[in-house]
Design a protein around this nucleic acid. Structure first.
Lengths: 198, 198
DNA sequence: GTTTTTAGACTGACTGGTCAGTACAACTTG
DNA sequence: CAAGTTGTACTGACCAGTCAGTCTAAAAAC
């Protein structure tokens, strides 16, 4: 039961998250200034430093926040579907929908995920694993129960599925923003399901 | 028949490419200083500006250079295989091998590819299309000739294939560098080929 | 074949500007 | 009152780009 002060402060933090997400996704971390973030959030610069100890800390909190939301969506998608194949489709849909709702964050993830030698690299790696593990669990159960090929490299398949959704969704939003989520989802599921016959 | 001067200058440019690639992949464009690049290349700062008009121009040249090599590898892979399915596997192998050889550049691509509002965004988009088109051609021919599903969304499949190789390969090199290319290729082909049965 | 000249390649100190973070007095809201 | 916020002013580090000058391979002159 948050009191007025907490609510107010949370609201400020949320506006800072939103502003930082947008700007950092567009221009990158280093090219985004704290002044820009403050202006975009409609907040004084001092307020940024009242709520976060540093620009880095703000960014790490942002990552935690964003990936946390995604993992929550993933868990909900799995819980709402019955069989592993249905759960897999639900996961794809959840990821696409999440990325549609938080496009900037997805661009940001894509930019920072595989970059080494950054202060927050470890944090991001851990966070990603939480999300990918949800996918891996579904695939493992599906393989064990005979829905999917038994020899499936579960870890790689999970990473590949996560990555392919990310790449396809960002491509969609950047280059074909008029397509609907359904259309993209259908095409993607068809591509994955296709007996490519290689 | 290059004379001593030209050879010297080409060598300097190559060293600047190598240094810039490494540093920008690790730290990003904005976080990499021209001084860093110059030091890593064993060259004075002025030399950077003697060879390139600006930091941006150096980066664009770097992108052109790197993607050009990849596209060349792609074309060679297609030419060396007979049927579309074999060509597709050859393309996957070519992309993995390329990324193994030029890990930094792959990380750099992944970081910059879907970032909008950058001076070089247009350039990069064009360059990527050149590479993805090679994949798309193979898939289109394969679909037309009945090797692959007829209704395949060729553009998306090509983008997805390109992206999934990129993501899987960078994941491999960052988190499991000890695996061999063959092992990764086999797993990836198996994942793609798998009747995931979704 | 030796000396002189030229211009291409490179150098590194310097400049003007930018930005993270600090300080603080005044204002607002619970 | 106290917690949260504002606005402004400031500092010190850092950095892209410049420029006057050096070095040297090769062309020209002797």
């Amino acid at each position: 039961m948050p009191d007025g002060r907490t609510r107010r402060r949370d609201d400020t933090k949320q506006r800072l998250y939103d502003a930082a997400m947008e700007l950092i996704a567009e221009h990158g971390f280093s090219a985004t200034t704290v002044d820009d973030i403050a202006v975009a959030a409609g907040v004084a610069k001092g307020t940024v430093y009242y709520n976060f100890p540093s620009k880095n800390a703000l960014f790490e909190a942002l990552l935690r926040h964003g990936v946390g939301l995604l993992t929550t969506d993933f868990r909900a998608a799995v819980a709402a579907a019955a069989t592993p194949p249905e759960q897999a489709v639900a996961l794809i849909r959840a990821e696409l929908a999440y990325i549609q709702r938080h496009r900037s964050f997805a661009q940001l993830l894509l930019s920072e995920m595989w970059r080494t030698n950054r202060e927050w690299h470890q944090t991001l790696h851990l966070l990603r694993d939480e999300a990918v593990d949800v996918i891996a669990d579904v695939l493992r159960r599906g393989a064990d129960e005979g829905w999917f090929d038994a020899g499936l490299d579960v870890r790689m398949a999970a990473a590949a599925l996560f990555g392919v959704c990310l790449v396809v969704a960002v491509d969609w939003l950047v280059f074909e923003p008029d397509r609907t989520l359904e259309s993209v989802q259908d095409s993607l599921v068809a591509v994955i399901r296709a007996r490519v016959g290689i």
